[in-house]
Design a protein around this nucleic acid. Structure first.
Lengths: 222, 222
DNA sequence: GCTTTCCTTACGGGAAACCGTAAGCCGATA
DNA sequence: TATCGGCTTACGGTTTCCCGTAAGGAAAGC
């Protein structure tokens, strides 16, 4: 009738507690919970060995580093490793991440089944998400759905992101060609770089590169 | 023996739930909880009127805006207003903020009694904090790290942040003086603006303004 | 009163960025 | 092969930015 064996990976104790409670509210048996990605992966592996695999993984994205050395320190890596181990594992990400690009990538590149943002009604959202995912649908929090739709924006190419990154790291524009040539990225001419920035500013209706950098930071592009 | 009447102000439902549970673990009667600052203030006022004031306020710092128009939209303002209404109200802040300067200001300027950062052992920390505050001591979670913070001992002034903001919004440098004059911000001369940017780049060892913008975005300054 | 000092601003030369034009390169097609 | 079209680059002129210098201007001190 519902998920039976759930694993929670979340470093914040308080968040971990409330996810446990949310699962309990749904009548799901007490879930296993861990505070480190490495532990999560170990659990998944053990469960597979014992022929009693997890039905669902609920994980955060950012895990804070502390004295405990960990191999895996990010939710994305955990998901990747977990799916690699058990490809049919359902996954819901429960995170404060708010950047559409990043979240879209989770669905597209990692094949997650649901995303719930830590926000006002996150507990209710999480319940809905679990329900949806159980029914083999994907779920995205309501406050994000619109944002993704709104994103009719111009799509930056890898090349664009590369040169924007260089600029944001302090490489001045006229020296960008040097770095492009070193990495065999073409076009590498200064003129091409200039034109590319010009096009980006024009399309996004920005008046300077600083605004472009700010935009990319907000969108999680860089 | 312990706090009797506690109010929780926290917009994230999940965080709210876990604070409630933490209080329950301590044998504190079910606390009132609200998701908006305005509601919190109303509750405090009503409790005072009924001669049954709150013993403790546990509040977040950042509250997300939504469709509901609110007068108070930040934890700091809530605390200020609450203390103004009931000066002996004990206050514990429960937030993800980890900039020491900001937290120090909470103790110094708002007279809060405890600070617990949303982090790995936050539920345990919160229990300790409640215990400490009940015994009329103040509490700060040991956890506060300032790894990146310490490196930039140089603090950006309000003026700095203003002109950086303008730049990131697409105002080109030579037009910044116009905006400064309109808002009666001095110095407003282009030369002063230039010098200020120059100083910031020098101190932070940046080579262009794009890098400065990226830095400020990462730090949450803008 | 008059310095002294600090802050602000104006100015100017040089560097970088901006932007249009035109030339060069290369693959595709007839 | 020759021609075309698209992409890349080189080259200038203009604007903006960068940065040192020096001139104003206000407050503090003698």
């Amino acid at each position: 009738m519902m998920f039976k064996k759930v694993l929670i990976a979340e470093d914040h104790e308080s968040a971990n507690i409330s996810v446990q409670k949310t699962l309990a509210d749904l009548g799901i048996p007490p879930a296993d919970y861990v505070f480190y990605c490495d532990d999560a992966l170990t659990r998944i592996q053990k469960a597979l060995k014992n022929d009693d695999p997890y039905d669902l993984l609920i994980t955060d994205l950012s895990f804070e580093e502390d004295h405990q050395q960990q191999k895996i320190s990010a939710g994305t890596e955990l998901i990747k490793a977990a799916k690699n181990m058990q490809s049919d594992l359902k996954t819901i990400v429960f995170s404060a991440e708010n950047k559409q690009v990043v979240i879209a990538a989770l669905f597209k590149e990692l094949g997650i089944n649901g995303y719930v943002r830590k926000a006002r009604n996150d507990a209710k959202e999480l319940k809905k998400a679990i329900d949806c995912v159980y029914k083999n649908k994907t779920y995205t929090s309501v406050d994000l759905r619109q944002a993704i739709k709104d994103k009719n924006s111009y799509e930056l190419t890898d090349y664009d992101i590369t040169i924007i990154s260089l600029l944001s790291k302090g490489i001045i524009q006229k020296e960008i060609p040097i770095y492009l040539q070193k990495n065999n990225i073409k076009p590498s001419g200064l003129s091409s770089v200039e034109k590319r920035f010009n096009l980006m500013r024009e399309v996004l209706e920005f008046s300077n590169n600083e605004q472009l950098i700010a935009y990319c930071k907000d969108m999680g592009i860089i």
